[in-house]
């Protein structure tokens, strides 16, 4: 256990160190990977282990981004305080959303969280505090060069991502983690076993809010300029869910593998499609999202347990047969 922790610290330190040795152009390619790694791990606890499909990561991301931006601009707070405000706003939002929706099973929770993104977008577009559709411009760090900033943002995101990974790794080995898995397998049975399902689910949901909120706050600073329509958008959710599930939801390793893989495949496909098909007006902006959508469909159809699940099956360590047959029995198969 301790050696593992030490290893994670060393890995983090190594990645940070390497980022300062590399060209900032290369590092900038990895900034979104680091950010989505964090968000995918945030999603993973409830979505992967708990089996509750959270389609509202963009809500937490947006609450964090706008919380931080409002604190920084409207209230003149420093970056750490602003990030904290963003995280708190996201957690409060998560608390309200969780209390309203987590008692409802799967499908309803999924669509509730999905809808929350659009509701928050409309609210952010309307109310004065977010400056509405005009968006917010954040303070700049004019003393630092673009190259330095790129590396700082990468480091911030990657530290957040690896911290989230460590938390997920720890939870996987805890009672909390096994409670989440029990909820995924059979929630009524988990309740009978004395698991306080609501609390377990809510905490996992709030973890998603915390990580999503911090990532959103950092993103706001990194982008310098945020609009409701580019922050509260289902495309953020799409990417988070896809990256977590493609790697393997319900495993700490899943997002670590899935995030770079999905981004890599997407970049490659755009390159291929762009060079093969001649578009009148260049590659349409929608292509990236179409590719992500198709990838999600493919993952759902052929790789529902992600790459991690695939490897496990190859090794013959599939999900416990007993649990599977019980599920079949319960469905009356």
């Amino acid at each position: 256990m301790k050696s593992r922790m030490l290893m994670m610290v060393l890995v983090t330190a190594a990645v940070v160190l390497v980022s300062w040795l590399l060209n900032s152009g290369i590092v900038s390619l990895f900034v979104p990977i680091a950010m989505y790694l964090a968000m995918a791990q945030g999603w993973n606890l409830l979505g992967g282990y708990g089996g509750y499909l959270n389609l509202g990561m963009a809500s937490f991301f947006g609450l964090g981004a706008f919380g931080a931006a409002i604190a920084a601009v409207n209230w003149n707070q420093s970056l750490p305080v602003a990030l904290l405000v963003g995280a708190v706003v996201a957690i409060l939002g998560g608390l309200v959303m969780g209390l309203l929706s987590l008692r409802l099973r799967g499908a309803f929770f999924a669509i509730f969280t999905f809808v929350s993104v659009f509701v928050l977008e409309a609210i952010a577009n309307t109310v004065g505090i977010t400056h509405g559709a005009l968006g917010i411009t954040l303070p700049t760090f004019s003393s630092l060069s673009y190259n330095t900033l790129t590396k700082i943002w990468f480091d911030a995101f990657i530290v957040l991502g690896l911290l989230a990974t460590v938390v997920v790794w720890l939870v996987e080995r805890s009672r909390w983690g096994s409670s989440l898995v029990a909820i995924k397998e059979d929630e009524p049975a988990a309740e009978v076993l004395g698991i306080r399902t609501m609390r377990v689910k809510l905490l996992a949901f709030l973890f998603a809010a915390l990580v999503g909120g911090l990532a959103g706050g950092l993103y706001a600073y990194q982008q310098q300029f945020i609009y409701p329509s580019t922050i509260f958008t289902d495309t953020v959710t799409l990417q988070v869910v896809l990256m977590a599930v493609a790697g393997g939801g319900g495993s700490w390793l899943g997002p670590v593998i899935g995030t770079p893989l999905v981004m890599g495949i997407s970049a490659l496909m755009r390159l291929i499609v762009g060079s093969v098909v001649v578009f009148g007006n260049g590659i349409p902006a929608q292509l990236e999202l179409i590719i992500y959508g198709l990838m999600l469909v493919a993952v759902g159809m052929f790789l529902p347990n992600g790459l991690v699940g695939l490897v496990k099956r190859w090794r013959g360590r599939s999900a416990t047969p007993a649990a599977t047959s019980e599920r079949l029995e319960a469905r009356g198969a």
Partner: peptide, 22 residues
């Protein structure tokens, strides 16, 4: 499972939305 169906439908929704806007 229901979750997988939802996941696939989410993917389908994104594809349709972006094809439409294309």
């Amino acid at each position: 499972s229901e979750i997988i169906t939802l996941l696939v439908l989410f993917g389908v929704a994104e594809v349709i939305e972006n094809v439409t806007s294309w």
